[in-house]
Design a protein around this nucleic acid. Structure first.
Lengths: 226, 226
DNA sequence: AATGCGCATTGACTTAAATCAAAATCCTGC
DNA sequence: GCAGGATTTTGATTTAAGTCAATGCGCATT
């Protein structure tokens, strides 16, 4: 897949005229990463950011004891590590591919030059950062104000929406990674999946999950109770 | 205090030439709010955002049982509620003044018009949103990967830095509000303050706190242990 | 088909923090 | 200075979730 068609499908470059897209493509450098290879790490100096071309990238924080909290999982078209381009200069978290991935690297200076002369690009970037801020408000809300069952129910409903299927979802990440995304550990996640199965809310078969009681899941997601 | 001098001190309008500042001032509408008066609420349609002129604004989420998690506390010069200007259209949280406050309201449409023709303004906005994203990564890290004593130690060190005093800090918010900021409840906060006092880390006298063992506090903040 | 490794589950136990209830302290306005 | 309400603290208890340890299962590779 050629760079320009990847770029044109990315929200960041949405609506740019072909000549501008060409300019953007000019400064992009493709880089390939193997599964679990470190793309960047928390506190590291950043001289550019990435856009995912293929694969999925996990962005996460680590505790001093090595526990992991996933902040985002980014797929094709999404920018990764753009925060230090605009403030702070160092990456705010770690990034690693969940699978073999191809990224496009944008050097900071060259990208900022494009931004300065390209209003639609800047507005797209504002929209993306705003969307992420909104996502973070939800994540903080989940971590602080909801218990694990509520977060899990919310995530399953989110997946159902994303996958356009009210009855059934496929987990696209391992249960261990899901635990880390929800701010818990695999043992706890496993127990709660069992409880939700026993309560008749869901059916579980490996990474394939049936949503048997959407009503109940919604209740659980918002109030934490059935 | 006249609007233009408030604006010129705000990071968002930093570096703008006087004529541009004048244009910005033209679209700003001052609004006064009493303590605890609702400025906007989670999910409400937004037709603009605010910049704090005087006072402090608390931005927070509420759980279904009424527990509160503070996301930010904003002071003079800081923008509040700007996310829906660029994406989503509705406020992602609630906002209320901690004290009688004056805000400047910027209507969405007029502000976006200014943005489109004012590159420095846009870059300032990108910097502000990026800084907030970075703050959120820290908040998620704190909530998910640290226990309350570690979060409290981190906050005290943050205050010490902010107040330029390594030995002593003043809490500028009530302990109840501090609990909500740290993602806990007043009872727990009170107990942990006592424990930290007993451990010789701090001295507590109302809202005045002495940092007796900065070393120990730093340890606690990063590893969670002494 | 058998081996072995990583992932997931289950069980017993510990722990941090929330809840509920009551007492103490601090302010603020009169 | 005092009354009264809010804020903070203390105590007893409960609870959600983490820890540690062992087992089970799935799956890929040979």
């Amino acid at each position: 897949m050629d760079p320009v068609s990847i770029l044109s499908a990315a929200p960041l470059f949405d609506g740019l005229p072909p000549d501008q897209l060409e300019k953007v493509a000019c400064i992009a450098l493709p880089k390939d990463f193997k599964k679990d290879a470190l793309i960047f790490s928390d506190g590291q100096d950043a001289d550019g950011f990435y856009v995912v071309a293929q694969g999925r990238i996990k962005v996460f924080k680590l505790s001093s004891e090595g526990k992991e909290q996933i902040l985002h999982i980014f797929g094709p078209g999404e920018p990764v590590g753009e925060v230090p381009v605009f403030s702070g200069g160092v990456f705010p978290a770690n990034a690693v591919p969940l699978e073999k991935s191809r990224l496009l690297f944008f050097p900071k200076k060259a990208f900022v030059r494009l931004l300065e002369e390209n209003t639609p690009l800047v507005l797209n970037m504002l929209a993306i950062l705003s969307r992420r801020l909104r996502q973070f408000t939800v994540q903080v809300e989940n971590l602080s104000l909801k218990e694990v069952p509520g977060r899990l129910a919310g995530y399953l409903l989110f997946l159902a929406q994303e996958q356009n299927n009210r009855q059934h979802v496929e987990l696209s990440i391992s249960k261990g990674q899901l635990a880390s995304l929800l701010g818990t550990i695999p043992e706890t996640l496993s127990r709660i999946l069992s409880k939700m199965k026993d309560a008749g809310l869901i059916g579980v078969n490996g990474s394939s999950i049936s949503l048997l009681d959407t009503e109940g899941l919604e209740m659980l997601a918002e109030t934490g109770r059935l």
